[in-house]
């Protein structure tokens, strides 16, 4: 019974932390963007502008929740739910610290990949159900982009799997006791970072919602809390990708002096900061450039990494 209670408290704690951090991230991101653009960012509401989150939440909740009459209603409502559910489900396998985490799956890494590949339905269906040309174009772009980047996202992680010899994320963290995988797997790390940004649809690769060409892309027709779910889904996605990068390449909770949980949070936060820095500094590529980059640069790089890692592991083992 106490074990069950412990498991449930774990689940609820992680949910609460992820959600509040995702909300907080909308403020952190704006402040950091401001800092990097010689501005202040939101600093009016409450201390340091922290209550901006509450103001935004009230604004989103009190807006009209509009389902366009020309839309495919059931799918239109379903789409934002999918992204929230899939990204949160993927959090189930993230090993936060020893003893903290929802489930300890043998195929944790594959589960994460599966959930992130299901998340694209949210964007595609949302874009299609809106029955609006900009949304549809956003949906198309999302589908093509996700397919292309998913191909090498999975492959780039196979080097890590080879080195750790397991799909279990806790085993992978444990295998980094001596050396973080970002050093032997530098190519895999770079390719996974690029794929992760594309999967989270963050700024250099936010083609599905490119404001200056597609209005708001797939969520043009969304308002109120449905838009809020997309918003939260995006931030949870950012946290998820950051947490996965920390788990797979930066030794997860491992680190001296500080408690494991602190290490995990610290590393995750640094990676999130890096994501925001990317948003602050890099321009958006053209669409054909994006696709060419995935297939002609990143995929060969991943395959080379896979080949070299395989050869080294084979030579080292025998």
């Amino acid at each position: 019974m106490s074990e069950l209670a412990l498991a449930w408290s774990n689940v609820i704690l992680i949910l609460a932390v992820v959600f509040s951090f995702a909300a907080l991230l909308s403020w952190i991101e704006r402040r950091l963007l401001g800092v990097w653009q010689d501005r202040y960012g939101p600093n009016r509401v409450g201390p340091f502008g922290l209550l901006q989150i509450a103001a935004d939440a009230i604004k989103l909740l009190s807006k009209e929740d509009w389902v366009p009459p020309f839309s495919e209603k059931a799918l239109f409502v379903l789409a934002p739910v999918i992204i929230a559910v899939t990204t949160l489900l993927a959090f189930a396998v993230v090993p936060v610290a020893p003893g903290i985490g929802v489930v300890d799956l043998n195929i944790g890494l594959l589960f994460f990949l599966a959930m992130s590949s299901l998340g694209v339905y949210s964007i595609v269906l949302g874009g299609w159900a809106s029955n609006n040309k900009y949304s549809l174009l956003g949906g198309f772009r999302a589908a093509a982009q996700m397919l292309s980047y998913e191909v090498f996202m999975g492959l780039s992680l196979m080097g890590v799997v080879m080195l750790a010899g397991s799909f279990n994320l806790r085993d992978i963290v444990a295998a980094q006791e001596d050396l973080w995988f970002c050093i032997p797997q530098i190519l895999g790390f770079i390719t996974f970072t690029v794929a992760g940004i594309a999967e989270a649809r963050r700024l250099p690769f936010d083609l599905p919602e490119a404001e200056n060409e597609l209005v708001a892309g797939f969520h043009t027709e969304y308002s109120s809390m449905k838009f809020g779910l997309f918003f939260i889904g995006e931030y949870v996605g950012v946290i998820l990708i950051s947490a996965m990068m920390v788990t797979l390449f930066f030794g997860g909770w491992l680190g001296p002096l500080l408690p494991p949980l602190m290490w995990f949070l610290l590393k995750t936060f640094i990676v999130i900061g890096f994501f925001i820095l990317l948003r602050a500094s890099l321009p958006r590529p053209r669409y054909d450039q994006l696709m060419a980059y995935a297939w002609k640069v990143m995929l060969p790089l991943t395959l080379v990494n896979l080949l070299v890692t395989g050869a080294i592991v084979l030579a080292w083992k025998s």
Partner: peptide, 19 residues
């Protein structure tokens, strides 16, 4: 080039605010 851009933007953290 991208990394250099990112470093430059990062250094803007320590500039004076124009707001």
């Amino acid at each position: 080039n991208s990394l250099k851009t990112m470093w430059t933007i990062f250094l803007h953290m320590f500039r004076r605010r124009v707001t």
